[in-house]
Simulated scan of single mutants.
Amino acid sequence: MTSFAGRLLLLASWLSLAAAGGAVVELTDENFDKETATGVWMIKVYAPWCSHCRQLEPLWQVLAEEAAADGVKVGKIDGTKERAMMARLRINAFPSIFLLREGRTYMYEGARNVASFRAFATSSYQAAKPLPFHRAPNSIVGRAMGRLHSLPKLGMRLYRRLRDQHNISDTAIVLGFLAVPVLVGGVLICCLDALYVRRARDEFGPEHDHQE
């Protein structure tokens, strides 16, 4: 009985320690900007089929629990699903590990153990060179790349909403999608034409409009 009670106490202590630590946050195309807007983040990009990624997974869980004491949040991105994030981070290998800190992005290329991860997130990152502005996922260029690669997903989401919630036929939806660029192009042409006419008036005078 005493042994059983001791095991329960040990289990309760372990659970309380785990709860005190952080949890790995699943980052997606939709929540990345909101989640990473504040704080320091260690992020890995992985693929479920990658053997090195599977070996890293338990270490990443431990890192999330221990790094909470350093004020560091830990996240992961499934590179096989989040295509916009793959483009923003310029991923070409799995796993890839990044540090987001004070508006800068650092690529981690050190040893794969918890102590090295924590050291990089808190201090040794200072010896690394941050990614250039155009490659940083939280820069204007990175955000624009993410929006561009999210367009197909947003279009499919809009299509399903129009079809399922508003009972609009596929033909009407396709025609509507085709009409949008035509309307936008027409507006741009009108704006350019108005600017050209105004410039012509400024250059040649009002009487130029009445010349044949």
Rank of each mutant, 00 (worst) to 15 (best):
K129N: 07
N138L: 13
F117M: 01
L89D: 01
M85H: 01
P152M: 06
L162S: 06
I97K: 00
E109H: 10
R112W: 11
G176W: 01
I168N: 05
G142V: 04
Y108W: 06
G142A: 09
R143V: 14
P130M: 07
H134D: 11
V141Y: 03
R161F: 09
K81W: 06
N167T: 14
H149Y: 14
I173C: 03
Y108D: 00
E82R: 04
D78W: 03
L151Y: 12
S139N: 05
H134A: 13
L131N: 01
D164G: 06
S150M: 12
T105N: 05
N92C: 09
H149Q: 11
I168K: 02
R104L: 15
T171G: 07
G176L: 02
R118I: 14
V141S: 06
A93V: 13
Y125V: 05
F133Q: 08
A121F: 10
N113G: 02
G155C: 09
T171M: 07
S116Q: 10
R135H: 13
L89N: 03
R157T: 14
R83W: 03
L148S: 08
M85T: 06
E82V: 07
I140N: 03
V174M: 04
F177D: 02
D170G: 08
F117D: 01
M86D: 01
A119L: 10
R160H: 08
H166V: 13
L100G: 05
N92Q: 10
P152I: 13
Q165G: 11
P132F: 09
R157V: 09
K153D: 09
F177C: 11
K153F: 14
M85K: 05
H149V: 15
L158I: 13
I168L: 13
Y159A: 10
N138S: 12
R118A: 14
T122H: 04
A119D: 15
A119G: 09
L162I: 06
I91F: 02
T105W: 03
A115G: 01
P137A: 13
S169I: 13
F120M: 02
R88P: 00
P137E: 08
Q165S: 15
H166D: 15
H134Y: 11
P132E: 08
L151M: 14
Q126T: 14
A93E: 11
I140P: 00
A87K: 13
L151V: 15
R90D: 14
S169C: 11
F117L: 03
A144W: 02
L154W: 13
R163N: 13
M107T: 14
R88A: 15
E102I: 07
Y125P: 00
E109N: 12
L131C: 05
S139D: 02
A127N: 07
R160E: 10
A115Y: 02
N138A: 11
E102C: 02
A93L: 08
N167C: 12
L162G: 04
A136L: 05
T122I: 08
R157K: 12
H166W: 08
Y159N: 07
M85P: 00
I77Y: 01
K129R: 11
G176R: 03
L175P: 00
L99T: 10
K153P: 00
R90C: 04
P130Y: 11
R143M: 06
T171I: 15
S150A: 13
A136N: 11
R161G: 05
A172F: 04
T171Y: 07
R163K: 14
A172H: 07
I77C: 00
